[in-house]
Design a protein around this nucleic acid. Structure first.
Lengths: 128, 128
DNA sequence: AGCATCTTCTACGTTACGTAGAAAAAGTAC
DNA sequence: GTACTTTTTCTACGTAACGTAGAAGATGCT
C-alpha cells in the first residue's frame, strides 16, 4: 500500500503543506496554480481539473487510509491522516522490512547518507 | 521507478538469493516450488509458469535496470544488477528524498527503529 | 417547491503487470 | 545444409490502478 499516482501525490502534498483541513474546491484551485517549490523544483504543473476529479482522488486516498474526511461540514473537509514526515518514515520502514537482511540494508543506507544527515542521525541516536 | 509486481519481485528474490547468474528455465523451476523462508513466512506460492512468462518478466526487469543479461551464452543468463541490500537502501533513499523535510523524516524513522537496529546504526555511524 | 451546491456513481482511456501462444532465431545432429 | 530442438522475441489479452470527468442523486437555502 505504498505507491501513489501523480495526482494523488500532488493532493497529498497540498494537504501536508496546509495545516488545516481543506475542501475539494480549495484543492482544485490550488492544483490549478503551478506550484514551484522553494528550491525551484517544479512541484507539479498547474492543471485545471474538474472538482469531481479531485473528489475521486480524495475518495481513493481515503480508502487507502491516507486521508480523513469530515462528513459533518457541508463541503466535506479533508486532511492528511499523518504528517508527511510520519508517512515517509513509515514508508522507509516498509522498504527496509521488505528485505530479510535489514542490517545489511542499513549499512548500505548509512553508506550513502550526506554528512549533515549522518550528523542528524548521531544526535537522534542519542550518543555524543 | 520503484515498485515491482508480485512476480517481478519473486524473480528478483531468486536472483538475489542465488549468487550466480541463472537461466530462465532455472528460474521457472525455482518458481514452481513454493518457497518458505526460514522464518516460516511464505515467500511466494509455487506457481507453474510458462518459460515465456519468466522471460517476459526478465525482459521487463532488464528494461528497468534491475537485471543484466548475458547474451553470449546460449540460454541467456540473468543476474541482478545490484545486491538486494544495495537496491533496498537505494529505495530507502528515494523515499527519503521524496520529502522536503528530510531531517524530520529521519527523526520519525529513527523513532520507530528496533533497539538492535539502533545499535547497528550507532556502530555504522562510527561513534562510540 | 425550486435552485444552487456538493457528492456519489459510473465510465472511459492509459499504463503496468501476469500470463502465455505463435513465430522467429539459433544451435545441434546428421 | 536440412531437419529437429531449444531458446528468444513478438504479440496479445485480462486485470487492476490511476487520471479524468459527466450524469445523476443528495443536501440545503430561499
Amino acid at each position: 500500500m505504498a505507491s501513489l499516482g501523480e495526482l494523488e501525490r500532488a493532493v497529498m502534498d497540498l494537504l501536508w503543506a496546509g495545516q488545516e483541513a481543506a475542501t475539494a474546491n480549495t484543492l482544485r484551485d490550488l492544483l490549478a496554480q503551478s506550484t514551484l517549490r522553494q528550491d525551484g523544483t517544479p512541484g507539479h504543473q498547474g492543471k485545471d481539473l474538474a472538482v469531481t476529479t479531485v473528489l475521486t482522488v480524495l475518495s481513493r486516498l481515503e480508502r487507502k487510509g491516507l486521508v480523513e474526511r469530515e462528513r459533518g461540514t457541508r463541503p466535506h473537509r479533508y486532511q492528511a491522516v499523518s504528517s508527511r514526515a510520519d508517512h515517509t518514515a513509515e514508508l522507509m520502514h516498509e522498504v527496509l522490512g521488505s528485505a530479510p537482511d535489514r542490517e545489511a540494508v542499513l549499512a548500505r543506507f548509512i553508506g550513502s547518507v550526506t554528512d549533515t544527515e549522518a550528523e542528524t542521525l548521531r544526535k537522534l541516536l542519542g550518543n555524543s
